[in-house]
Simulated assay, not measured.
Amino acid sequence: MDATYKQFVVPGGLTYTGKATSPKAYSGLNRVKIAWLRGADPSVIKAKVYWNNYADSVGVDIPPTGDTISVMITNLLEKNYTFVIRTYDGKGNSSIPVEVVGGSYGEKYQAQLLTRPVNSTFINAKGKLTINWGGADVSNGAFASEVKYTDVLGNVKYQIFPVEMKTSEILDLKPNTNYQFRTIFKPDSLSIDNFYTGYTDGGLFSFDKKDWSIIDFSTQHPGGDNAVTNFIDGTDATRWHTCAGCSSYPHFATIDMGAERTITQFGVWRTTFETGGDDRGPDKFQFFTSTDKVTWVNQGTFNFNRLINGEQRYLTPNNPRARYFKFVGIQGPQSYMVMGEISTYGL
C-alpha cells in the first residue's frame, strides 16, 4: 500500500539549511544589490542568487561574522527582476528558495528626468545670492538641487538643497561670477544610486531692489499712490505718476542700486494700477549709467510699448559697470507720465 509514494521517500529525510531572512533588493544604475539578514543556522557557508529563471546566478561566501549578507549584481538590463536566494552548507544541502523582486534603472529612466527650474535669482548689495526655485519633478524621484559655484576664495563649491526648499541662499559667491545647477533624483526609496540631470547655467541675476533708493527725480503727483518710490517697489500694480498739469517731458528718476554691478539688461513695465493697464507711459525713453553720479553714460534711446502689460526687456549695448542709473522718459502722449516698475539684470 506504500507503492504510490515510496519512490519519493528519502531515507533519513531531507536536510534544509536556514533560508535567507528578510531579503531586500536595492535598485541602482544597471545594477541591483541583494541583501538579507544572517540566519541562526551556523552550518550555512555560502549562498547563490539566481535570476532570469535560473539562467544567471552569482555565488556568495557567507563570512563567519556580521549581521547582513549582501551581493552586488552588475551589468543588468533596465527592467524588473525576480531574484531567488538559496543558502548551502558544507555538505551541499540547500535551503528552500526565497524570492525577492527588484529592478535596475538606466538610460530610459535618465532620459525622462527634468531639471528643476529657477524662477528668479536675486543678488543684493552684499553679494548674497537668493535662488527662487520652480516646481520639482518629484513624481520621478527628484529630491534635491545641487548648486555649483566659485566662492570668494576661488574654490569650486557645491551646495545641496532639498526640493522642499522653495528659496535657497548662497552667501560666498565670487563677485562677477555665475553658478550652475542640476537636479538629483532617487528612483525609489531603496535605490543605492542617485541620478543627475545635466548642469544648467544660472542665467541673469536680478539686482535686489531692497538695496535701492531714489536719489533724484523730476516730479511726482501728490499722494502716496503716485510716489516715485513706487517705480522700484517690486510690482507693476503700483505707479509713479509725474505731476499732472505741472510737468512736461523729459521725466526722470535716478536710482542708487547700493553696489556696483555689470548691467546686461533692464526691464520696464507700464502700471496695472488702473483696471486693464494704464497707457499713459512714454513712447520713448533713455537709459543712463554711472559709477560716481558725476559722469553719466548714455546707454541708448529705446521704444516702449505703452499699450501692453508685462515686462519689456532691453539689452544694454556695452554691459556697463554701474552703481547708479537714470531712466528718462523723453516722449509720450501727455505732458505728464505714468509708469509701473523698472528692474536691472546682470552680474
Rank of each mutant, 00 (worst) to 15 (best):
140 N>M: 13
77 L>T: 15
101 V>Y: 06
185 F>V: 02
131 I>W: 01
301 T>G: 04
19 K>I: 02
174 K>V: 00
262 T>P: 07
205 F>A: 09
237 A>P: 03
270 R>H: 08
36 W>F: 15
246 C>T: 08
37 L>R: 09
173 L>M: 14
270 R>N: 13
211 D>K: 03
270 R>P: 05
313 R>D: 07
76 L>G: 14
103 G>F: 06
7 Q>V: 08
192 I>A: 03
30 N>M: 15
73 I>G: 06
38 R>M: 05
158 Y>I: 12
167 T>Y: 08
43 S>Y: 04
91 K>Y: 12
108 K>P: 01
14 L>Y: 12
101 V>C: 00
165 M>G: 01
92 G>R: 09
269 W>E: 12
31 R>S: 14
138 V>K: 15
235 T>I: 13
18 G>P: 09
134 G>K: 09
16 Y>C: 00
198 G>M: 01
285 F>E: 03
155 N>Y: 09
67 D>W: 00
33 K>N: 10
225 D>I: 11
278 D>N: 15
170 I>R: 09
102 G>R: 02
226 N>H: 15
305 N>K: 10
85 I>E: 02
6 K>F: 10
276 G>T: 02
282 P>I: 10
118 V>S: 05
27 S>A: 15
304 F>C: 08
240 W>L: 13
129 L>H: 03
8 F>Y: 15
171 L>N: 11
56 D>I: 01
209 K>T: 01
102 G>Q: 05
305 N>H: 11
285 F>Q: 06
303 N>A: 14
91 K>F: 12
88 Y>C: 03
46 K>Y: 03
178 N>M: 04
267 G>K: 06
323 R>C: 11
85 I>H: 02
73 I>E: 04
61 D>N: 12
232 I>W: 04
189 S>G: 07
238 T>A: 08
315 L>P: 01
209 K>V: 00
125 A>P: 02
77 L>N: 15
289 T>L: 03
251 H>K: 07
325 F>S: 06
175 P>A: 03
99 E>D: 14
84 V>H: 01
260 E>V: 12
217 F>M: 11
14 L>H: 13
191 S>Q: 05
